[in-house]
Design a protein around this nucleic acid. Structure first.
Lengths: 192, 192
DNA sequence: CAAGGACATGTCCCTTAGTACATGACTGGA
DNA sequence: TCCAGTCATGTACTAAGGGACATGTCCTTG
């Protein structure tokens, strides 16, 4: 249910519409906590019903800006201080690595090169963002300082993954495995 | 749909039951790719229907061991070589950090200390595992080498997060933010 | 004034994730 | 022999994720 608290947290900075919130989620958090607009609009509706937010104003094109209520502020604080962090990680890249022995060495080398490139790029995007912040481009409000910490996390995680992919490329896998069961080598497959 | 391919990958090492697969998913992959047993049993059933696996043997207590078929082997190879990696990351810890400005400095310090401790422990668990492998305790089949790469990924990601949490604890947040909208500081909350 | 693009909100539906519940077989020790 | 613990499989239900589709407004520019 962290989407709810993410939205509340953003609204704690000031009123915003579902459209605004969608964009802000994509901007910085997009690669760390994806959220599609259908979920956001639905959650906003539920939070209005629950009294955590209310409608601040109506704008052009049916725009509705939401404002956090005291109950909403209390709820996001409760989440931050009293709810245990969900430490679930779900990295498909690491799941795949468990099965590298099923890949041809050439395919694996290509795969790892592409992975390293991807993570390096992501890290660079975040690092550039961090540098703009450190240069004072966005001011130094508490909100900006918090965002800076989030960005630093992104940089570090993506750099770790990039280095991992490069390390893995140098790690010698014994052979181009066939995929047969190791205990009783019966299976034989000659297809590609 | 990576659960399917994860199961197929494990079955490529040799026949196993749903129970075995559940445990193996928890063992190494548990912290990197969670999978609950209801999902596993359901997916196994679907894969039997689809001809990707079949029943190898029946054991005591209704145990059913599954065996991968040629179609299954082809499918997991196709996944590894032709399907793009899903780079989605979902780190609640980083989402929360975006809202650190809403926390009292004391709460935040405690939070970051606990986070650092958690990630350090996770990294240590993986590192110990890696060392046992490097000492040759599990042999050096291609499967073990692949697992070694996965474990290295776990070590690096968790170490990165641990270092991030320690870094964040030293990063100066300007003030114990009130949570009022910065544009018009109206809200006042005196509750804890 | 027409057309394209960004703004803006939503529904529908299918898949996936995850918790709780239910059932029963075998095993080892008190 | 009973009981606890582990092995083993599954259903049912709820919540969350995510793509596709639908609708309409406002703004700029040719």
């Amino acid at each position: 249910m962290s989407l709810r608290h993410g939205l509340l947290g953003l609204l704690a900075e000031g009123p915003a519409s579902g459209y605004d919130l969608s964009r802000r989620f994509q901007e910085v958090l997009g690669a760390l906590w994806p959220a599609q607009h259908p979920k956001i609009y639905a959650e906003l509706g539920r939070m209005v019903d629950g009294g955590l937010i209310d409608i601040d104003s109506h704008g052009p094109r049916g725009r509705k800006a939401y404002r956090i209520t005291e109950a909403g502020r209390a709820e996001v604080r409760r989440w931050l201080t009293q709810v245990d962090v969900d430490h679930t990680v779900r990295l498909e890249a690491l799941l795949r690595s468990y099965f590298f022995w099923l890949m041809e060495p050439d395919d694996l080398a290509r795969h790892l090169a592409r992975e390293a490139e991807f993570y390096t790029e992501q890290a660079a995007i975040y690092r550039a963002y961090a540098e703009r912040k450190d240069a004072g481009e966005f001011g130094s409000t508490p909100q900006v300082q918090s965002m800076r910490i989030t960005i630093e996390g992104g940089v570090r995680v993506y750099e770790a993954l990039a280095e991992w992919a490069r390390w893995a490329a140098t790690y010698k896998l014994p052979a181009a495995a066939d995929g047969g069961a190791p205990e009783d080598g019966t299976a034989n497959s000659d297809d590609g």
